[in-house]
């Protein structure tokens, strides 16, 4: 019943952890900019506020898609923490994101539409690397199951430094951080207004935000898998990775979609595949 505990804990704790991470993120970002920044709990205030707002829609369908998005993000995160099959989790994630995109399409508004297109481009940019990361972890641990990967005694990172770097690259896309925050951004000013979330407001927007928290926790969990042979190092590495993402966010300009796609694919192609090729060569040699 371990898996059930993992899933339930994720469903309950991930929003808390995700919100806190977002709060810390905003605080650190502010400090990097020489500002005081918002209170630590600001993300919770924001979401709470959004639930207090009037429910305004362009079309009622948008709420449905966002709800499905939230549920499937939570579900795939729960699967992850239940120790499920990594590939299935990745695909479930894609499904969730497609629903967010469909929500943005459904409202039929210019900025939402462009945001949706860009979100799909992002999806296209990071998908190969995520799959390669899963395959890389399989090659090291011989299992696609998160439970097995997490329980491994093999320091995966030593075998998969390239894959990890590649994953860190697309993590920037997934966390919606500069330079790859092209479809919607945490920063207010973007040429497509709020992109994919332009027309979502009130509780719908809050759901998107909560889904994002779930997602972040899942992603950090994924990062942890690279270091899972030693929990202490793992947690530290996750923290450092996240800090590095914040740092990158603060020292780069947003790029165009072409560069985002290219970066994602090159990360997968060079860092990911290169690493895996060497690894499989080593394994063939060893076998």
């Amino acid at each position: 019943m371990n898996w059930l505990i993992g899933a339930v804990l994720f469903l309950i704790l991930a929003p808390v952890a995700g919100g806190l991470i977002a709060g810390i993120d905003r605080k650190i970002t502010a400090r990097m900019q020489g500002r005081v920044g918002p209170p630590l709990l600001q993300p919770f205030y924001d979401v709470g506020k959004l639930f207090e707002k009037e429910n305004v829609v362009v079309t009622t369908a948008q709420n449905f898609y966002v709800l499905v998005y939230l549920i499937f993000i939570a579900l795939s995160g729960a699967l992850f923490f239940a120790g499920g099959d990594l590939l299935l989790i990745v695909f479930a994630f894609t499904l969730a994101h497609v629903f967010l995109v469909l929500g943005a399409y459904a409202v039929h508004s210019p900025y939402s539409h462009i945001g949706a297109e860009r979100e799909l481009i992002q999806l296209m940019a990071y998908e190969p690397m995520v799959i390669l990361a899963a395959v890389g972890l399989y090659m090291v641990t011989n299992s696609f199951y998160v439970a097995d990967i997490a329980a491994t005694t093999v320091p995966a990172i030593l075998y998969l430094p390239g894959v990890f770097l590649g994953f860190a690259t697309i993590l920037t896309i997934k966390l919606r951080k500069s330079p790859f925050d092209i479809s919607t951004s945490h920063h207010a000013h973007q040429e497509i207004v709020k992109g994919i979330t332009t027309e979502f407001s009130g509780s719908t927007l809050a759901q998107v935000e909560i889904a994002h928290w779930y997602e972040n926790v899942f992603l950090l969990g994924f990062v942890y898998l690279f270091f899972s042979w030693n929990p202490v190092i793992g947690v530290v590495a996750v923290a450092i990775t996240y800090a590095a993402e914040i740092f990158i966010d603060n020292v780069t300009a947003r790029v165009r979609w072409q560069a985002a796609l290219k970066s994602g694919w090159l990360a997968a192609g060079i860092l990911g595949l290169g690493n895996l090729a060497i690894l499989s060569y080593m394994m063939l040699g060893g076998a």
Partner: peptide, 12 residues
């Protein structure tokens, strides 16, 4: 959703 939501035009 059908009940409570207020409909607004898209942002332009």
């Amino acid at each position: 959703f059908r009940r409570s939501a207020k409909h607004l035009p898209a942002y332009m």
